[in-house]
Design a protein around this nucleic acid. Structure first.
Length: 595
RNA sequence: GCGCCCGUAGCUCAAUUGGAUAGAGCACCAGACUACGAAUCUGGGGGUUGGAGGUUCGAGUCCUUCCGGGCGCGCCA
């Protein structure tokens, strides 16, 4: 049986509707929902059933509502049922039914809130996937946190999740990286060349001038001496060193990135290399597969309407018929030098994921890749025959704010903020929590002052503080009554009738919405909802705590009232469990104390 | 020019995916420490949800159209 009392009530409502008309169409029944009441004056929950079913049952909503009132009024745990507005049915639940949730939470621990909504479907969540051309920066951070939390969330909601990182280690950018690392190598062995002289010799000029490659150059020098250079320490023929330098540099950069991910608390299950994929011929094989289905052709694209690039010239290209699957234009797969476009390789990669048997592929991307989504969706649809869903979660840009002013990101001005800088200044927990306080697809301002603040306007702090307070109470309880007093199994048997204050019940009702919050957030792919839930839960708890100052009977620990104390400890322990569970989804530490 | 995303209190953002009187925090004003943690809490003012139409029992949410911002638009990834 589900732990979600709203789902249970919905089942009861559906049973009532079936009683009215056994032939109620499933698509109508699907629209019936039982939701927590927004206003406590309306009761505890409400259903739209009467309005939704009016047409199918050929009866006015009021009449259906009246029938529901009669039926639900007899249902167990129901205290009162009323009709409101155009046909809402408001339901008030007996308090013991809500209180009964506490033993459930205490018994199940953090698995309370787990859902089976995912039906064990195999999902691949790909995120971060930064080029290994430098350390991670703020731009990567949001995608990393959102992807990681989304994966955790979907796992909790009953999906079988694989976390994946796609290493973009093929193409022109890593060649440019190799040249940049080679420059640092030449410097390390004392080349007479100046940076400008060197740059003039590099195809496309020297990129990646950041000093993070200095250690790479030093490592190459240590291992190879001057063997990779000309005898005069000038530039040797690229074919003699470029593969070696590129491989070594990518390895070192990836090691760096993995370290950054570790510091951020992100651990992916699978790292896939674009270069390995290309080398295996997977991309070309996939193109052949599409060609066999008649989805590849040589053609000439029209220039974009209204804005023709200056250097536009009609050009025959190898194209994928993505328009057959809803894309705006067909997409090129080969560059003029015959090599694959990024898209072609990415098709190969997604085919690889399909071969691994996933039912669903989710890419967490930067919003600047939004235009890329339709073509990838088209490719996955073509390759899977529509059997596998492709989704993208787009992350909008993050603006860093300090002292009310935006921090301009500039490598030259030295205000470039790496992920490591951010973590050192703000801390992992605050970074992760703050990144999840906005819908992914909305621009956000990351206020450094706020993220460091130890006050209510820092949600990370506020929620962690609530958890710390819970643990503080439980520690005190151990001192007062012994360790056995806070054993979940013991607390689960506590008599709970004394939990009768409005703030007690508000907190319990909040705990009751945890399962549906998890499920809804997972199905909407919106991990930020967990952050908001926890913030509200923390607020309920802090409020109850302070009520105890005015009203001693609401204090958690009352040495002369063991029964009441036990009930309150059950509430505190259950709250701590749910906070811990939610923070677990977000990848934030549930701290024991804040001192 | 076309496509996608967005526009909600002075500011930063929510809104149970079409539900009832649109909610929090910050800022502002007024209050609460004899406490198990006052790093907290209580109360107050603040809104034509960018504008205008439409769909229906019901719209911040869906459709149309303007205005304003972001991103993208053939061999970058």
């Amino acid at each position: 049986m589900t732990h979600d009392i709203y789902t249970r009530m919905r089942d009861t409502v559906l049973a009532a509707l079936k009683g009215l008309d056994p032939s109620l169409p499933p698509e109508i029944a699907d629209r019936v929902e039982v939701t927590p009441a927004r206003d406590p004056a309306h009761g505890d929950m409400a259903t739209n059933a009467a309005m939704v079913c009016a047409k199918a049952l050929r009866q006015p909503p009021q009449k259906i509502a009246a029938a529901l009132v009669a039926f639900l009024g007899e249902a167990p745990e129901v205290e009162e049922v009323t009709i409101a507005g155009p046909g809402f049915v408001n339901i008030r639940i007996e308090k013991p039914a809500f209180r009964a949730l506490l033993p459930v939470i205490l018994t199940h621990g953090e698995s309370y809130g787990d859902s089976t909504a995912g039906h064990g479907r195999r999902v691949n969540v790909e995120y971060v996937s930064a080029n290994p051309t430098g350390p991670m920066h703020i731009g990567h951070c949001r995608g990393a946190v959102v992807g990681d939390a989304l994966a955790n969330l979907m796992a909790k909601a009953g999906f079988q999740v694989t976390k994946e990182y796609y290493i973009n280690d093929a193409g022109a950018q890593v060649t440019a990286l190799a040249w940049a690392a080679y420059w640092r190598y030449l410097q390390a062995i004392g080349t007479p060349l100046t940076e400008e002289e060197f740059s003039a010799q590099v195809p496309g000029g020297l990129q990646y001038r950041g000093d993070y490659l200095v250690p790479v150059g030093a490592a190459l020098a240590k291992q190879h001496g001057s063997a990779l250079a000309q005898p005069d320490l000038g530039i040797a023929a690229p074919e003699n060193w470029i593969d070696l330098v590129r491989d070594a540099t990518i390895d070192l950069m990836m090691a760096e990135i993995r370290e950054d991910l570790e510091l951020l608390g992100v651990r992916q299950d699978v790292f896939s290399s674009e270069r390995a994929l290309v080398a295996s011929g997977a991309a070309d094989a996939t193109i052949d597969r599409l060609a066999a289905d008649g989805l590849i052709y040589e053609g000439v694209l029209e220039p974009p309407k209204g804005k023709t690039p200056d250097d536009w010239e009609p050009r025959p290209q190898t194209l994928f018929r993505s328009t057959q699957f809803g894309d705006d234009v067909d997409r090129p797969l080969r560059k003029s030098d015959g090599s694959n476009t990024y898209f072609a390789n990415d098709i190969g990669y997604h085919a690889n994921k399909l071969d691994r048997g996933f039912d669903m592929l989710i890419d967490v991307l930067g919003a600047d890749h939004g235009g890329y989504v339709p073509r990838m969706r088209a490719a996955v649809q073509a390759l899977s025959g529509g059997g596998t869903k492709f989704e993208a979660v787009l992350c909008q840009i993050v603006h860093i704010m300090r002292g009310g002013e935006p921090v301009r990101m500039s490598k030259r001005a030295g205000t470039y903020v790496t992920l490591r800088d951010l973590l050192e200044e703000v801390g992992r927990d605050a970074v992760r929590f703050t990144m999840l306080t906005r819908k992914a697809d909305a621009q956000m301002e990351f206020d450094l002052d706020q993220a460091i603040a130890q006050t209510r306007d820092n949600p990370a702090f506020y929620v962690q503080y609530a958890h710390a307070r819970c643990r503080s109470v439980l520690r005190s309880a151990v001192e007062m009554f012994g360790a056995a007093a806070i054993e979940p199994a013991v607390l689960a048997t506590a008599p709970l009738d004394s939990l009768d204050d409005e703030s007690d019940l508000t907190l319990i009702r909040r705990l009751a919405t945890w399962p549906r919050t998890v499920e809804a957030a997972a199905l909407a792919r919106e991990p930020h909802r967990i952050a908001f839930f926890l913030y509200d839960l923390a607020a309920d708890f802090h409020m109850l705590w302070n009520r105890g100052r005015d009203n001693a009977t609401l204090r958690f620990l009352q040495p002369d009232q063991p029964a009441e104390t036990q009930a309150r400890l059950a509430l505190v322990a259950a709250t701590a469990i749910v906070i811990r569970s939610g923070l677990g989804v977000m990848g934030v530490t549930p701290v024991e104390e804040m001192r």
